[in-house]
């Protein structure tokens, strides 16, 4: 969190760039973009002190649509890039945007390690349960019987459970949001960015092109029936047994965030040579 937290210096619209998104009409990511701008405005973030980092995929196009600094890197490595940025520039607010393919498949190990490190940043994964940019292949969260050209008849594999993985790996804040409720999503993002340590927000964001069935999500989502817990075991049990459409903040941890060493008073470089001299 940057020092600018309490000041509202921009309206949501000020966080939008002038670039027109390439997303399909009806894509859930439009609403996620809206939620980003609302959350940033609510937090009063300065655009120049905020960086949105992403990988590859439909959701990862989001940085260019915002007026902050952005980095649209290579597939799966957004968390690593954001980690290098945040530990060397702890003054910045760093938000990472990803999708279910980018974040859980090619970037899966970085996800686990980032939760474990608990560096103060927010990770937003727009989950549409399909590779949209490459036209409809199964992702780690795709249902086992979902029929695709790459895997006719379905993969037969149980979906990956990112929220439980995040908990088990040490994430300090776990929430599920739905793109169709942009105000609620913005509120969750505000809480996630404010919470110290690594915050993970899974946003259900329908792909109406390759998963028209996901239009139905708006009828399936419902608010989480109980308030967030700070007990990871309790949170894991709830998440393991819910219907996957439980929306809200599900876990607020109390782990100490990764301590980024403040720059100490630097010694003269010539001092380093002393080790070498006979």
């Amino acid at each position: 969190m940057s020092t600018a937290e309490t000041r509202t210096i921009c309206k949501p619209g000020d966080y939008k760039s002038d670039i027109k998104p390439i997303w399909c009409p009806g894509c859930g990511d439009y609403h996620v973009l809206l939620s980003f701008t609302r959350a940033f405005a609510q937090l009063g973030l300065r655009p120049e002190d905020t960086v949105v980092v992403s990988g590859i995929g439909c959701s990862s196009r989001i940085p260019a649509y915002l007026s902050c600094y952005g980095f649209h890197g290579v597939h799966g490595r957004s968390l690593a890039l954001a980690t290098g940025l945040k530990v060397s520039r702890p003054d910045l607010t760093v938000v990472v945007a990803s999708g279910d393919g980018d974040g859980y498949s090619i970037g899966g190990n970085h996800f686990i390690q980032a939760c474990r490190r608990n560096i103060d940043m927010t990770y937003v994964v727009m989950d549409n349960r399909v590779y949209g940019m490459t036209k409809g292949q199964p992702s780690p969260t795709t249902e086992p019987d979902f029929d695709t050209a790459l895997f006719p008849g379905g993969t037969g594999l149980s979906p990956f459970h990112p929220l439980v993985i995040a908990l088990a790996s040490g994430a300090n804040f776990v929430a599920r949001a739905f793109s169709g409720e942009p105000n609620e999503t913005a509120n969750i993002l505000v809480e996630a960015i404010r919470h110290p340590g690594f915050s993970f927000v899974e946003v259900l964001s329908p792909c109406v092109t390759f998963r028209p069935d996901e239009r139905e999500w708006k009828n399936l989502v419902h608010p989480a029936p109980v308030a967030a817990t700070s007990d990871p075991a309790k949170a894991a049990r709830r998440i393991m047994t819910d219907d996957g459409f439980n929306i809200g903040i599900l876990y607020r941890g109390e782990r100490r965030p990764y301590q980024i060493k403040a720059a100490t008073k630097a010694i003269d470089i010539g001092e380093l040579e002393k080790d070498f001299a006979l």
């Binding site: 960086v51 980095f71 890197g73 490595r77 980690t83 290098g84 940025l85 060397s88 520039r89 910045l92």
Partner: peptide, 15 residues
């Protein structure tokens, strides 16, 4: 993979 991306991220931040 992470090491090179971390270095790029730090350098993007001016370090």
């Amino acid at each position: 993979l992470a090491a090179i991306n971390m270095a790029i991220g730090a350098s993007f931040g001016g370090t």
